[in-house]
Design a protein around this nucleic acid. Structure first.
Lengths: 280, 280
DNA sequence: AGGCGGCTTTCAATGGTTGGAATAGTATTG
DNA sequence: CAATACTATTCCAACCATTGAAAGCCGCCT
């Protein structure tokens, strides 16, 4: 029912035909932005949802998605919605900092978990946050804040503090220059105290955080080193506040972290003089 | 090199300039084929290696890779090589059939593992193979054939048989029409026996495979169902041949698989076919 | 019985993409 | 130390994959 179906002459000033408002973004970026739409809360999405969130026309989204589905990066459910596919998961499992450390650490995490029956976590740093690589939990454990694959702030979690303490100086300054992420149930640390804490973490190999939010818990974390002596991950245990005293947990966590480090090729050199002088 | 270096006028018959040998492949496919180059054996690759294996010119590969790195799908190591990135792993962790079932199944896998101290596996089907989603192993367990993220044949592994038995009829016929994948250390099954085996698996909820290759082991697997009653995964245990009798393991594996199924929303209806469960 | 929303196909215009060539950097060899 | 070989990176003109409005479908709600 077009009100003016007659005149097929758009006349002058009507280049409405070939219009391409905002071409210019590389195809890959668009495809990746489609993947980025998926989140903890959005695990199954329709075409239009994907198109909307990735900010592109439906036909374009469909074409890209079809390719992703053909390859296996996405899968289509019976109801027409799309989910992240096993093929992508498969490739991602080759990520050294993802499944790589996980695979090596898992047996030790299991031992720790079996002995304590509390949450055991493994996390790595990605940019300005910690990413949870693994979490072992019994069915009846306390409520926990983070899920595997999720992100946590550096300044207000035990694993975060460990990873931050192990990062290079410049990065630490960058982080401290920024306002801290608000984290519910965790006391915010003034900069001075944070610096002292980080220094302590480096010295003792232990970070500790008490939080009250999802539930009253204490987290104890310890760094995992690679062969070059860099902190590549943080191992932690989360227990209900008041159950096992933290100072009892610390040695177990440290021991587990050291075991993992050793398996990563870290030479647990005795204290000092670990300076390598190579490349500027 | 050029026999006529003088005249800078290419003159006629010099179409060497604009040559387009084999353009025509969508950009995404190329990017994905770069990701596909990574494998268990190739976890860190140089630009030229990637370009070679993905069969594309280095500049093209570089451009695509740069985008992938910018997004976090790949990461660049200090030595210039590329590895799969944490960001990709993060998105992949949203895969329902990957980390999804894993997350739900993990506590039960842990229980089973803790009691038996043998390998516990979780696998899903992707196309014509099983993909290993999770594997719990103690540090001192027997040698094992597959790694998490790896693939296994459907016809010659316990999890494979379970997944095959749970697939739709048409798919099963497709598989059986093809020559079986050669698998070292596993006796090949003639079609008739395979059909009988699959039928047994459906009836009893248990598949069993004895293999001699990496070491002498027996695998016992059982299906995991979703709310619709489809087989979405297979749970299995792998023990050294001659240790625990398989008929002792079967109930434990079945129970664990059922527990996972229930958590996935499966209503364990009492099937008419299963009137006597203890096969006598 | 019509409107609405989402999904899919079509197609001409075009700009992102391409890859040879050249340059720069780096490791290996004589 | 030069020669060699390889890899990584930049450049750019030709061009084809990509684009998105438009229109056709389909199912659903009213």
């Amino acid at each position: 029912m077009n009100p003016t179906p007659d005149t097929d002459t758009p006349d002058a000033a009507a280049p409405a035909r070939g219009k391409r408002p905002k071409q210019g973004e590389p195809v890959i970026d668009r495809a990746l932005s489609l993947l980025a739409v998926f989140s903890d809360r959005r695990r199954a999405l329709t075409l239009s949802e994907l198109a909307r969130h990735a900010d592109m026309p439906a036909p374009t989204a469909l074409r890209l998605i079809s390719r992703l589905v053909a390859w296996g990066a996405l899968e289509r459910l019976d109801d027409g919605r799309y989910v992240v596919g096993v093929r992508l998961w498969e490739v991602a499992s080759l990520s050294p900092r993802g499944h790589g450390v996980r695979e090596i650490a898992l047996p030790y995490l299991e031992d720790l978990f079996e002995v304590t029956r509390h949450h055991v976590l493994l996390a790595v740093r990605d940019n300005e946050q910690a990413v949870l690589i693994e979490r072992l939990s019994s069915k009846d454990a306390t409520e926990v804040a983070y899920r595997v694959g999720g992100r946590a702030p550096l300044r207000s979690t035990a694993v975060g503090l460990v990873l931050l303490a192990g990062a290079d100086q410049q990065f630490q300054e960058t982080i401290m220059a920024k306002p801290p992420e608000k984290e519910p149930g965790v006391a915010e640390m003034p900069e001075g105290q944070l610096r002292r804490t980080l220094s302590d973490v480096r010295r003792t190999g232990i970070a500790m955080i008490r939080r009250s939010h999802p539930s009253m818990t204490v987290s104890v974390a310890s760094p995992v080193f690679d062969a070059q002596g860099s902190v590549v991950a943080a191992l932690s245990i989360v227990v209900p506040d008041g159950s096992t005293p933290p100072n009892v947990l610390a040695p177990a966590v440290r021991a587990a972290a050291r075991a993992v480090s050793r398996n990563l090729g870290h030479q647990a050199t005795v204290s000092a003089d670990v300076r390598t002088h190579s490349r500027g």
